[in-house]
Design a binder for these strands. Structure first.
Length: 488
RNA sequence: GGCGGCAUGGCCAAGUGGUAAGGCAGAGGUCUGCAAAAUCUCCACCCCCGGUUCGAAUCCGGGUGCCGCCUCCA
C-alpha cells in the first residue's frame, strides 16, 4: 500500500516516489507580507502542515521550505500609503504570520527564505536566462520570453495562442516593451523613491515569480519532490516558475504539484478584490478555537472548495468538543483506571506513544490518508475512537467502572492521540487544570444544590446548575442522589 | 471564448462496479423534580434521460444546474 497523491501537473493521482528514498523535499509558496493572513491562508497552511505531518508520520525525512515575499508592488504601495518604511511593513507582517500560524498549531518551516535575502542569486539567475536566450532586457526591465519555452502552459493546461486570445483585451497599455503579451517581468526598474537593488540593468527589484525559482534552487536544489500552494497560484505563478527554472536548469522543477481549493464565505468567493475576507486573528480573537478552525478545514478533501458559514463553524465546534473529550480521556481518567504511566512527566505526549501500526484504526487512517490525503475519511476513524472513549467515560463516571479493560482503553486513547496529532489536532490538559473554579468550590456548590433539591427548592437548584454551567461546569444528576460534574 | 472542477439524507462530507463511512442537526424510548453533547434506537436508493453489466452513486453517451481559473489573491 503506498501513498498516492493528485498531481496538478499530470491531472491524475500518482503513487508518491521521492527523488531520494525516504527523503522529501518540499517547497511551499508563502505569503506576500503586506497584510494580515485571512481564512484562505489558514486553509492552505493547515492543509500543507497536515501533509507534512503525515509524511513525517509515514517515516519520511521531510525538509519543508516556505518563502516570504518581502518585496513587491503591494508592499511598496502599503509603505507609501501608511508612510512607514517598507522593511518595517514586512517585519510586522512576517511576525504576524508566524504568530497566527503557531496559534493554529502549524509547525514552523525548516527554513523561511526571504526574497530580499537572495537578490544577488536572483540577478545571477536572470543573467543566465538572458544568456540562454529566454529573457531580454528592455529599458531597465527584464522580461521572460514565453514563446521561447515550448512547454509553456503545461501546468495550467493552456496553450499560448488560446491565452493570447483571452488576454488580448487586457494587454497593450504600457506593456509595449514586451515582445509577447504574456511575457512577464523578471526584473522591474525602480521609480524614484522605490526600494531598489543594483543590477546589470540598473536599479530595480525582482519580479514576483523569479524569487521562488531562485529560493527553491538555493534551499533545495534544481529539482524537488513537492511544490505546493493555493489553486490560484497555478497560473501564472507556478507556470512561470516552471518556465524560469526548467529553462535555466534543464531539470524538472518539481515532481509533484499540489494545489488546495478555495474557501468561500457564505457561498461567495473570497478574494482580495471583493474584500470579503476575515483575518485569522479576527476569528481567533472572536473566540473561534484554533482546533475548531483546523477541524473545519480538514473535514473536506483539500482540493474541494469549502464554504465558511456560521453554521459550519458551529457544527465544527460541536464536533471538536467530541474529539476533545476523547483526547482528554487519558488525562481525566488515566489515574482512576490505574494506568502505570499516568504519573509520568511525558504522559499524554504523542511523541512518547507507541501505537500498534497494524491496529485496525491506524490502518484505516493510513489508507484514507494515503489516498490523496483524504482527511475527511481519516477523521471518521478518529470520531469512532473518540465516541468509544466517550461511552466508556460515561460508564466510568456513572457506574464507576468501564466495560473495556483499562489497558485496551489506554491503547485506544493513545491511538486517538497519535492519529489526531498527525492532523495537528491536540487538546491541552492545561485547559482543564486552569479552569475558573477549584474542585473544592465546585463540590461545595454541588452540596448546596443537593440541599436545595432535598428541600424541593428546585428553582434554587437550577440556578446553581446554571451558574456553574456559565463557568463551564456541567452537572449530571445520577440515580441515588449522586451528582457528577465535569468541565466543558 | 479557452481550460478545469463539482452535483450523495435538513446541513457538511466520504465512498469510483456488488445494494450508501463519519460529523452536525433532528425524532422516539429510557433516565430525571427538571435538565443534560447520560443512554438505547431510528433517519438517503446517490441531479435528469438513455446505454454497458448478472449487478452502477460508482463505467459510457446526452442533458440540466452550480463553481473556479484565464487579472493582485492561499
Amino acid at each position: 500500500m503506498s501513498l498516492t497523491l493528485y498531481n496538478s501537473l499530470t491531472r491524475q493521482k500518482e503513487p508518491f516516489e521521492p527523488l531520494e528514498a525516504g527523503r522529501v523535499k518540499i517547497y511551499c509558496c508563502g505569503v506576500t507580507v503586506y497584510d494580515f493572513c485571512h481564512l484562505g491562508h489558514a486553509r492552505s497552511y493547515i492543509v500543507w502542515d497536515t501533509v507534512r505531518r503525515y509524511l513525517m508520520w509515514r517515516g519520511y525525512r521531510v525538509t519543508y521550505v516556505q518563502n516570504f515575499t518581502d518585496i513587491d508592488d503591494k508592499i511598496i504601495r502599503r509603505s507609501q500609503a501608511d508612510n512607514i518604511p517598507w522593511e518595517q511593513i514586512t517585519e510586522t507582517y512576517i511576525q504576524a504570520y508566524l504568530d497566527d500560524m503557531r496559534r493554529l498549531n502549524i509547525q514552523d518551516a525548516d527554513r523561511y527564505p526571504h526574497a530580499t535575502q537572495v537578490i544577488p542569486q536572483i540577478v545571477q539567475f536572470i543573467e543566465q536566462l538572458i544568456a540562454k536566450g529566454y529573457a531580454y532586457e528592455a529599458n531597465g526591465d527584464v522580461y521572460y520570453a514565453v514563446e521561447r519555452f515550448p512547454s509553456y502552459g503545461k501546468l495550467s493546461g493552456r496553450k499560448l495562442d488560446q491565452m493570447e486570445a483571452g488576454a488580448s483585451g487586457r494587454v497593450g497599455d504600457g506593456e509595449t516593451k514586451k515582445r509577447h503579451p504574456l511575457d512577464f517581468a523578471l526584473w522591474k526598474s525602480a521609480k524614484p523613491g522605490e526600494p531598489s537593488w543594483d543590477s546589470p540593468w540598473g536599479k530595480g527589484r525582482p519580479g514576483w515569480h523569479i524569487e521562488c525559482s531562485v529560493m527553491v534552487k538555493e534551499e533545495l536544489g534544481d529539482s524537488i519532490d513537492i511544490h505546493m500552494g493555493g489553486q490560484d497560484l497555478t497560473f501564472p505563478h507556478h507556470e512561470n516558475e516552471i518556465a524560469q527554472s526548467e529553462a535555466a536548469l534543464a531539470a524538472p522543477l518539481s515532481r509533484y504539484w499540489l494545489h488546495n481549493g478555495f474557501v468561500n464565505i457564505s457561498g461567495e468567493k473570497m478574494s482580495k478584490s471583493l474584500g470579503n475576507f476575515t483575518t485569522i486573528r479576527q476569528m481567533l480573537d472572536a473566540g473561534i478555537e484554533p482546533m475548531v478552525l483546523r477541524l473545519f478545514v480538514l473535514q473536506a478533501q483539500y482540493r474541494k472548495p469549502i464554504d465558511f458559514t456560521d453554521g459550519a463553524i458551529a457544527s465544527a465546534q460541536n464536533s471538536w468538543s467530541t474529539l476533545k473529550d476523547g483526547l482528554l480521556f487519558g488525562h481525566r481518567h488515566g489515574k482512576t483506571l490505574g494506568w502505570v504511566d499516568a504519573a509520568e512527566a511525558d504522559f499524554g505526549d504523542p511523541a512518547a506513544m507507541r501505537i500498534e501500526a497494524d491496529s485496525s484504526a491506524a490502518s484505516q487512517f493510513q489508507s484514507a490518508m494515503d489516498d490523496d490525503f483524504n482527511t475527511s475519511a481519516a477523521l471518521a476513524v478518529l470520531f469512532e475512537l473518540a465516541k468509544d472513549l466517550q461511552k466508556e467515560r460515561n460508564r466510568l463516571v456513572h457506574d464507576g467502572e468501564t466495560q473495556t479493560d483499562a489497558n485496551t482503553l489506554r491503547q485506544q486513547w493513545q491511538t486517538l492521540t497519535v492519529l489526531a496529532q498527525v492532523l495537528g489536532l491536540e487538546a491541552s490538559p492545561d485547559q482543564d487544570a486552569t479552569a475558573t473554579l477549584s474542585d473544592e468550590v465546585i463540590e461545595a456548590k454541588i452540596q448546596e444544590r443537593k440541599a436545595a433539591k432535598q428541600s424541593k427548592s428546585f428553582a434554587e437548584a437550577d440556578r446553581i446548575r446554571d451558574e456553574l454551567k456559565a463557568l463551564g461546569i456541567i452537572l449530571i444528576d445520577k440515580p441515588g442522589g449522586v451528582t457528577e460534574w465535569r468541565r466543558e
